[in-house]
Design a protein around this nucleic acid. Structure first.
Lengths: 266, 266
DNA sequence: TCCTTGGACGAACACTGTTCTACGAGTCGA
DNA sequence: TCGACTCGTAGAACAGTGTTCGTCCAAGGA
């Protein structure tokens, strides 16, 4: 480096570095970096702004909200999920399972970002692409359209919830809690339950703590898929058309839901 | 009211009202009241303390954390869930469905309290009571113990996630969003999707927005229960003993989970 | 050339959870 | 009866938070 000239006093430079200008994508990328480093609760407007060498007010020119920033971050993360090249209806259950695990892999690799996904309808481009793929797959299998549509809800919830739960564990062990000790404590807690009030839980303490996150996740997916399988039309129905003739027996899906309405008052 | 005498000056009352002393349960009850009035984000230490006519520091003598307060609140809410008088294995699917809807009724009647329940293992007394009931019911039906144990996980997640989702909608319509207009916008959004990239979603826009929260909830429960049903031992196996002989075919539950381990680094 | 416009940003507002420290009343032993 | 010694009650403060206001400056159009 050459010798640097002193600043002329009355030039008051105010910003020595000619930083690259702010932009939506730059902010989102920085937020993802902060997310990976410090978790979702570490992603504050100040923290992101500081990482960009500016103040929090500067972000509001490109992002209207912290909530909007979070949704942009989620969409960016979801875009990392890779889909299979093409749907394979003959092994649809395996393929759905693979997608679920791929989604969980990506989501949990970004700490607890799945918390953002829990309350929001997935309308981002990547999220819609995944939904489209799954919907196409389920329809090709022969599931009635209404069943397939509603099944997407269930699958999405399964993925999000499990990813969030897994991230909670990750955060916990990141904070120093030994996972074996933790499950040991849980085990002895169950064993210490009063036998007269909790005979099943007390007696099945071993079984309750069996299986890690992946095993339990795989089980839940399998149960859901077996349930979906039961909605497939029988052989007698499928012999007619080109292959998929839905819209037939999807009405008996929901048993009479209790009349208890969600309260709609303001 | 009778005329009130003035205070004697040198008595310096300092607290006109002889408030009842603080206690854990009083704090929790107040927190629930604030929760019902202003939602979970409105439950702050200051708000609860103010409701009790004191400062936030006073709460920390009875509650170590805001997190602990939240869990106490959750346990209090869960204790409102009423269980059937006795398990009825012959109609287990209906009974599980009823419990799920009862749980959702209670949870959603307390705004977004289900958010607390999402990341925590249900170890409160009421939560354990519900778990014990469901576990007993599933075992009586004849499900293998490992299947029953893992199924509790799935049911709990289903209840919590759906309650949270329902509460998000409730909050949204409480903030003034018209729900019909909202679904209308969603519908036209799906219709406006490019047909070449999202043919299924675009073509099934009607089907996608069909059904309210209860219908979809009932569907997910039904799918899960049908999946569980497939784990029941066949008739050839059950003819031997008194009725329930588990621990047999529970091993093939989980298909080979991908080796992708959750990262365990600090 | 001036003038408008839009991004950048310091300061501030109204909050948050939590801790420190002092105060005051109650109880228990002497 | 009286001191000592707890323990619940709080005021004040600390280090944060999301968001807004008003100012500033540089670039672009007329």
């Amino acid at each position: 480096m050459s010798a640097q000239m002193p600043e002329i006093p009355w030039h008051k430079p105010r910003k020595a570095e000619p930083r690259q200008p702010l932009s939506r994508s730059l902010i989102v990328e920085t937020a993802v970096r902060v997310l990976d480093a410090e978790g979702l609760s570490g992603v504050t407007m100040r923290r992101v702004a500081q990482e960009l060498g500016t103040g929090p007010a500067s972000l509001y020119a490109h992002v209207s909200n912290k909530e909007e920033l979070f949704e942009l971050v989620l969409e960016r993360v979801v875009s990392e999920i890779r889909l299979p090249p093409r749907p394979e209806p003959e092994r649809w259950k395996e393929q759905v399972t693979e997608i679920c695990f791929e989604a969980q892999r990506v989501l949990t690799s970004h700490r607890d970002v799945s918390l953002v996904s829990l309350g929001s309808i997935p309308l981002g481009e990547s999220q819609l692409t995944i939904t489209e793929f799954l919907l196409d797959l389920l329809l090709r299998v022969g599931l009635p359209p209404q069943v397939a549509a509603w099944a997407l809800d269930g699958l999405g919830q399964l993925i999000d919830t499990d990813a969030y739960e897994a991230s909670v564990y990750s955060e916990r062990i990141a904070r120093g809690t030994d996972i074996h000790q933790y499950f040991g404590q849980l085990h002895s807690f169950l064993l210490a339950l009063p036998t007269d009030r909790f005979p099943r839980l007390q007696g099945m303490a071993d079984t309750m703590v069996t299986g890690d996150g992946d095993e339990r996740y795989a089980f839940k997916i399998e149960v859901f898929l077996r349930g979906l399988e039961s909605y497939l039309p029988t052989d007698a129905d499928t012999g007619t058309g080109t292959g998929t003739d839905p819209h037939t027996a999807a009405r008996a899906a929901a048993p009479a839901a209790p009349a208890a309405r969600r309260r709609l008052d303001a």
